[in-house]
Computed example of a mutant assay.
Amino acid sequence: MSQEINLDKLTTEATSNYNNLDKMSIKEILEGINNEDKTVPHAVEQAIPQVEALVSEIVPRMKQGGRLFYIGAGTSGRLGIVDASECPPTFGVPFDLVIGIIAGGDTAIRKAVENAEDDIEQAWKDLQAYDINELDTVVGIAASGRTPYVIGGLNTARANGILTGAISCNKGSDLSKAAQYPIEVIVGPEFVTGSTRMKSGTAQKLILNMISTSVMIQLGRVRGNKMVDMQLSNYKLVVRAENMVMRELGIDKSLAEALLQEHGSVRNAIDAYRAAH
């Protein structure tokens, strides 16, 4: 289907603002990349109303038991998997509440799977393996906004009454048209022409951070500004949890440690102590 693609019209494929990269010094390369990266937060800021609209629809569904799915290919798919995989340790939610799916399956996380992104029907098949239903949300991620795997998944999900969102870096893309709540972050040409793992990938990561974090806060998974439900899965996190409990309750380290060992989380430790005092 390559003959159907007109990359010249895509902002993400526009020629870099820099030329002769291969003649630059290391310092010039690094400064050029950094200068381009500085533009990303402003582009993300312009998309906040679109992010808010999507999150406002996700939250009530998840309060009723719905799940959040990310689907993508290549870098976009990997970013969705990263965000999903960080939700359980950060917010103490089940591993299957936020789910990242990549074209080509788990093999594609580390190694590109040939032509996987071009299968317009496979994303829906992948979603069906999770018994997807009308309380769930599917967010498609594609910098170009034209990845068939993602567009096909959103179109079929939407046709089945499932809430759909999209994250892309081109205006008016087919992906945006497929989603009920599209998010478009227009970051402009990449430092290396067409290398959307750079600014586009950074923008997508920032948007994913915003979506999952705001959803989890709305679901009550943060108290004040603390990750009170985080998993105590390594020494650093245990120490962080002890410090949270000590500061919140005004107690010493040994008591905080004992409370955490007994109750398993910052939230439960604090609540149990207060209930007893």
Rank of each mutant, 00 (worst) to 15 (best):
R247F: 14
N133C: 05
I207R: 07
R110V: 13
T11M: 14
D136C: 08
G153K: 03
A142W: 03
D126E: 10
I99L: 11
D22A: 09
R221F: 05
D136N: 04
I270R: 11
Y181W: 06
Y18D: 04
N243M: 12
M216E: 11
L249G: 10
V185Y: 02
R146D: 02
A258V: 12
I183K: 01
L68Y: 10
I71Q: 09
V222L: 07
T39I: 14
M216I: 07
A53W: 04
G188I: 13
K38G: 05
Y181P: 12
A43F: 08
N35M: 15
N234A: 03
T107I: 15
G194V: 05
P89D: 04
S212C: 09
I132W: 10
M198S: 05
K171M: 14
A258I: 12
E134G: 01
A143L: 09
G194L: 08
Y235A: 11
G65N: 07
Q231M: 14
V82N: 08
E45S: 14
G264P: 01
N209F: 13
E248H: 13
I81T: 11
Q204D: 00
I251F: 01
V238C: 14
N170T: 10
R197G: 10
T12P: 04
V222F: 03
L7S: 09
P49V: 01
I102D: 04
S200H: 09
H263I: 06
F91Q: 05
A157V: 07
M246Q: 13
R78I: 11
Q3C: 13
L97R: 12
L163V: 01
V215M: 07
I167Q: 03
R61G: 04
K125E: 12
I29C: 05
D229W: 13
A275N: 15
F95Y: 12
N155H: 10
R110H: 14
S168Y: 03
E242R: 12
I167G: 04
H263P: 13
N170Y: 00
D118T: 08
F95L: 04
S144E: 02
C169A: 08
A258Y: 06
D174S: 15
R197T: 15
E134Y: 06
L260D: 04
G66F: 01
Q122L: 10
E114P: 01
T15M: 12
I81Y: 02
F95M: 09
